[in-house]
């Protein structure tokens, strides 16, 4: 069982090697040290490649959950201007696990929204660890309807462990809230660009992810259930999470291969948290490209196109009548 810390330990070893390299470079030049430098450099490159481009699904889960990973408000601040937050679902409360608001995107008014996790303990509690309750989904849909009314595009940023398993969330009908969002988002008459930035955790993620375009950051994950949840059900032991992470096929590459997402946005070496500015720049470029493309699609075609996009998902079955005996 690989420890989640493995990836950080491997990075430690890269840093170790780099320190050694600096030390050697400080020594007097000579054939001997030059050869050593070349060898060491090659080894550093190899280790880096191994660590960052051959990450296991479980390691990607760890990166997606990295405590320093940029969150929705970081992207809003970097990519958009004039953000005005809009609060409340007009039904029950303002859910702090979801942030929504009007903003400016390269000169155009747009609606932005997403789940928001907290950094320190106080913020984490305030944001309910980024897990929305029904009022969060309802707030999100409320602002999306405002965007539709005024013909403004919508950008959604998804980063959620999963829907909140609590008595209050059930009492107020989180299943209904998610279902309602799925149906309504599918027929909103404005462009919707969705990006999975961290954890795309089941229904809690999908509730704001029915878009014309769905992107995933390179090390984000998107799954029907958390690897821990899957492990405790299928293996009756949460310790099998690493195995479950592979079995669930939850990485950006997997989702792309299965035809469930559109674009994988590359992350800076070592993950988005290693260079948040660079991450925001790449994300910004992709969002501009997506919006330019969607703005050319007439509104009536837009909703048909969105329907067809999801309608095609999961053509993974066979018509057994074609080649097997009738069972009854």
């Amino acid at each position: 069982m690989a420890d989640p810390k493995d990836i950080y330990e491997q990075r430690e070893s890269v840093e170790d090697l780099e320190r050694q390299l600096t030390e050697i470079k400080k020594l007097s030049p000579g054939d001997e040290s030059e050869r050593e430098i070349a060898l060491l450099q090659a080894r550093i490159d190899r280790v880096k490649r191994e660590v960052y481009s051959k990450l296991t699904p479980w390691q990607k889960v760890q990166l997606a959950r990295h405590p320093k990973r940029p969150y929705t408000l970081d992207y809003i601040q970097d990519i958009f201007t004039d953000f005005i937050e809009l609060h409340g679902d007009r039904r029950f409360a303002d859910d702090h696990a979801v942030v929504c608001g009007m903003a400016n995107f390269h000169g155009q008014p747009v609606m932005v929204l997403g789940q928001q996790k907290g950094r320190d303990t106080k913020q984490k509690i305030f944001r309910n660890f980024g897990q929305p309750k029904p009022e969060g989904y309802r707030k999100a849909l409320r602002v999306m309807k405002i965007a539709e009314k005024f013909g403004r595009p919508i950008f959604c940023f998804v980063d959620v462990q999963g829907a909140y398993p609590g008595i209050d969330a059930e009492e107020r009908g989180q299943a209904e809230a998610i279902a309602h969002n799925l149906r309504e988002m599918s027929r909103l008459r404005v462009p919707i660009v969705v990006t999975i930035t961290g954890e795309g955790g089941s229904g809690g993620a999908l509730a704001i992810a029915v878009g014309d375009v769905v992107n995933m950051l390179e090390y984000s994950v998107y799954s029907v259930i958390s690897p821990e949840g899957c492990a405790s059900i299928m293996w009756r032991d949460a310790a099998h999470a690493e195995t479950a992470a592979s079995a669930l096929r939850l990485t950006a590459d997997d989702l792309k291969e299965l035809g469930l997402i559109d674009t994988i946005i590359p992350e800076p070496e070592g993950g988005a948290h290693n260079n948040p500015k660079q991450m925001s720049e790449s994300l910004d470029k992709q969002l501009q490209k997506d919006l330019e493309m969607l703005k050319r699609v007439p509104v009536d075609q837009l909703t048909d196109r969105r329907y067809e996009k999801f309608r095609r998902m999961g053509q993974f079955f066979e018509d057994a009548s074609a080649h097997s005996a009738q069972s009854s």
């Binding site: 799925l182 029907v224 309608r311 999961g314």
Partner: peptide, 11 residues
């Protein structure tokens, strides 16, 4: 069926 089954909700 992993994320494929999740997408059936939206579909």
């Amino acid at each position: 069926e992993g994320a494929i089954s999740l997408m059936q909700l939206a579909k």
